[in-house]
Amino acid sequence: MAETVKKIRLATVWLGGCSGCHMSLLDLDEALIDLLTRADLVYGPLVDAKKYPEDVDICLVEGAVTNVENLELARHIRTNTRTVISFGDCAVTGNVTSMRNRIPVSDLLNAVYHEVSAPIGPEALKVLPALLKKVIPLHQAIKVDLFLPGCPPHPERIAAVLQALVNGDDVDLPADMRTFG
């Protein structure tokens, strides 16, 4: 039976975050093997794919939307993905990434790239994608179907969500698996 079922196309994306959520995903350990018998990882930092593919079933998006590039990618993810999951607190709430929101962007870039030794900032050289005035959680940019909080989300939580989705069940996490932080 299992053979005839089409494998789920799973993607992961790393926006403005520390990659800790991806580390936690790897901490699924042997459960990963189980998962990958049911799903193909088609895009993300863990696989070698240059372009976000079309027709993705599930996408775990780590990190907040911090710059124009993130925003563009988020739009692209939305058009090509059935279930978009805010993966971890930065995607869900902005979290640590959004702590820069209290500082005006110009001051921020000044402090990072100008007040130290480098004379010309990458922003001026158009190396860095333009920063948004405020870091926003993913759902304020695109519609998000599921929220998987935690900093990082515990592997248990990730497993519970992915298992349910792969089985085609509703995701219903207990309260203690829904906490931020």
Partner: peptide, 22 residues
């Protein structure tokens, strides 16, 4: 934290409003 616990208990899994970031 009582606020954190309540959010989880009541199923408040995301905030639709702009974070004011004061």
């Amino acid at each position: 934290c009582e606020l954190q616990t309540l959010a989880a208990e009541l199923g408040m899994d995301h905030v639709r409003y702009d974070y004011l970031n004061p």
